[in-house]
Amino acid sequence: MAAKDTGGQERASRQSEEADEEFTEDSSDLKERQARLSEDVEDVLDEIDEVLESDAESFVRSFVQKGGQ
């Protein structure tokens, strides 16, 4: 679709190629990719564990706002 665009044609087609690559990878290496991703997400969660406020229950409960627009 974007490739029909006369303006910025190069960029548009490059972007959709990138998207296509991602789809291809998505379907062929799905399992491997999911494994890799979850490892990556594990790392992120470890970091977030460190910064999450302690006592989630009372922290969330005490976040009370007055209304706004």
Binding site: A2, D5, G8, R11, Q15, S16, A19, E22
Partner: peptide
């Protein structure tokens, strides 16, 4: 404007 169009399409497609 071109970037808005490109990203809009790319994001929706994905």
């Amino acid at each position: 404007t071109q970037e808005v169009l490109d990203r809009w399409e790319s994001v929706l497609t994905r």
